[in-house]
């Protein structure tokens, strides 16, 4: 039960960080619990990866002073594992005590490395990819963007989310977007609820995928990752989800150079679309699009079972 937003510039970079912040701030009332971004920069050397991790949860931080040592230990362990897999840390930045951004150079199996890092229960990789920067934390868009220095981020496209917790907890691991672990550069935001979640989740777990939270939206990320890994195109995966996933949902998927949306058969979750030659913007409410495009524009609602994919 949330607000979602997405933006994609065709063939040029722009200040997507600032644009997403303005859009998500306008959607604050739809989800006061947490805010998240997945924004995509230019991406340089294919062997360079940006990895964002968090090593403590909201409830850990309530436990007292012991948590500082715990956090330090977990970070040390991450550094050890990176070294073990031959990844070279180009830069390491602690944005918050528990949230870090690494720039790595790695020529090997990133999936194996990611799995190894997540063996430590408290550590979660929020995202890894050439261009993807995934940021999520408790609070509204301006808090999160301010803390993570996102307002000046330049890139081609991005998706974002403001969350109102339904049946799972208010914490970072249940915040959106979800990265499609361990596949580079895929992220998902979702508004709605999935009512065959546990059936689908057990199916995905049997196929070897991991889940970090009990949030139904994580399933969409895993599901998309599973399909893409098996050679399906993003568009086909979105189409297939409409018949396989029960409930009501509108969700956005971003990959390194694409942005896709899908709306379920009940069309119960809102999305407003604005399309022009060089910019496509979408959000749960028009007010978010208006936050970045004050001039008179034409917008419309996608219909039920509609699937769209845009190329950056």
């Amino acid at each position: 039960m949330c607000g979602i937003a997405g933006i994609i510039h065709r063939g040029k970079s722009s200040n997507v960080g600032g644009e997403m912040t303005a859009m998500l701030q306008a959607l604050k009332h739809r989800g006061p619990d947490s805010t998240g971004y997945a924004v995509y920069g230019e991406g340089g050397d294919p062997k360079d990866y940006i990895m964002r991790i968090k090593v403590a949860e909201a409830e850990d931080r309530k436990t007292g002073h012991g948590v500082h040592k715990l956090i330090a230990d977990r970070i040390a362990r991450v550094d050890e594992i990176l070294a073990e897999h031959g990844a070279k840390v180009k830069s390491k930045e602690a944005i918050r005590e528990y949230a870090l951004r690494y720039v790595l150079s790695h020529d090997g199996d990133t999936a194996a490395m990611a799995t190894h890092i997540e063996e430590d229960k408290g550590t979660e990789i929020l995202s890894m990819g050439n261009g993807l920067e995934l940021i999520k934390d408790l609070g509204d868009a301006s808090d999160v963007a301010g803390a993570y220095g996102l307002n000046d981020f330049t890139g081609t496209h991005g998706i974002g989310h403001t969350r109102m917790a339904t049946e799972s907890d208010v914490d970072i691991k249940s915040a959106h977007p979800y990265w499609a672990f361990p596949y580079n550069d895929i992220s998902v935001v979702h508004n709605g609820q999935i009512t065959n979640y546990w059936i689908m989740r057990r199916e995905m777990e049997r196929k070897g995928h991991r889940f970090q939270s009990n949030c139904d939206s994580e399933l969409l990320a895993v599901y998309t990752a599973h399909n893409l890994k098996n050679g399906m195109s993003l568009e086909d995966s979105l189409k297939k989800s409409i018949s396989e996933i029960d409930g009501v949902f509108t969700y956005l998927v971003a990959t390194k150079d694409q942005l896709g949306m899908a709306k379920d058969t009940m069309a119960a979750k809102p999305l407003v679309l604005y399309e022009s030659d060089d910019l496509i913007a979408m959000a749960s409410e028009e007010v978010a699009i208006r936050a970045i495009l004050p001039q008179e524009i034409d917008t419309y609602d996608p219909y039920d079972e509609e699937v769209r994919v845009w190329q950056a």
Binding site: P270, E286, T299, D301
Partner: peptide, 26 residues
């Protein structure tokens, strides 16, 4: 004058509700 979202005129009881563009679902 332009488009409208979903549930246009939900539980309408009277009057004329006109949208020149397209409307959403329900």
């Amino acid at each position: 004058e332009k488009n409208a979202g979903s549930t246009f005129g939900a539980a309408l009881r009277g009057g004329d509700l006109v949208c020149r563009g397209s409307v959403g679902s329900r």
